[in-house]
């Protein structure tokens, strides 16, 4: 079984924890061994948040090392840049094209880097960007941004779409299942279009 390391980077409050749980649930359903690592507490208050999902036949460490992530799923551009060395050379990098200024930028002590996506594209072959916030707004709830990102990622994993749908049904709160399934379909569709374009 091929090992797959997925690293999720975002800003506290963007719902990255739920994303990793959906990915974990889908991988289990697909018959893999899974270990995931999350960080709770202080960084969840708007800080830089990362979670690891390691999928394989017998996973030891729950942590992903630098240069190891097959997929880097980034909920925010600056976070993509921050955690870039964790992606492996041929890794897929999916970036939500959203900018959330960190406090040093807000207070004028630092500058938000420019051309992040272009710079990353210059280094990596498989870089996909999406305005997931806009898509989420269109669906009527910005909170589903995380499941749109799941939809995007699903296409690159080889795990069938129905397994993902089932994982979502089991993981998210019941009253949000329909909305989140819609969000998943959006992400999945967009990923399909992207892959076609890149082929």
């Amino acid at each position: 079984m091929r090992n797959l390391s997925v690293m999720i980077a975002g800003v506290g409050g963007q719902g990255t924890l739920l994303t990793s749980r959906v990915i974990g649930a889908a991988a289990i359903k697909a018959g893999y061994d899974v270990k995931m690592s999350e960080v709770h507490g202080m960084s969840q208050r708007g800080g830089s948040v990362i979670t690891y999902v390691r999928i394989g036949s017998d996973v030891k460490s729950p942590a992903i090392e630098k240069g190891e992530a097959d997929i880097l799923l980034c909920f925010e551009k600056l976070e993509a840049l921050r955690w870039l060395d964790y992606a492996n050379k041929d890794g897929t990098i999916i970036i939500n094209d959203q900018k959330i200024d960190p406090m040093p930028v807000i207070t004028g002590k630092a500058k938000y880097p420019e051309n992040i996506v272009q710079n990353i594209k210059a280094r990596f072959k498989n870089v996909y960007t999406i305005d997931a916030l806009d898509t989420a707004k269109r669906l009527g709830n910005i909170k589903v941004l995380n499941i749109i990102m799941v939809g995007l990622l699903a296409k690159s994993t080889g795990i069938p779409a129905d397994t993902w749908r089932e994982a979502i049904r089991e993981t998210v709160k019941e009253k949000f299942v329909e909305l989140n399934l819609k969000a998943f379909e959006e992400g999945y569709k967009i990923a399909g279009c992207m892959l076609e374009l890149s082929n």
Binding site: G12, G67, L81, R82, L84, A87, K89, M103, P113, F124
Partner: peptide
């Protein structure tokens, strides 16, 4: 480990906030 994809760009820290 060789880090081959470092962009050598200064990345502002993102401390947690209220």
């Amino acid at each position: 480990e060789e880090i081959y994809n470092n962009l050598n760009e200064s990345v502002p820290v993102r401390p947690p906030v209220l």
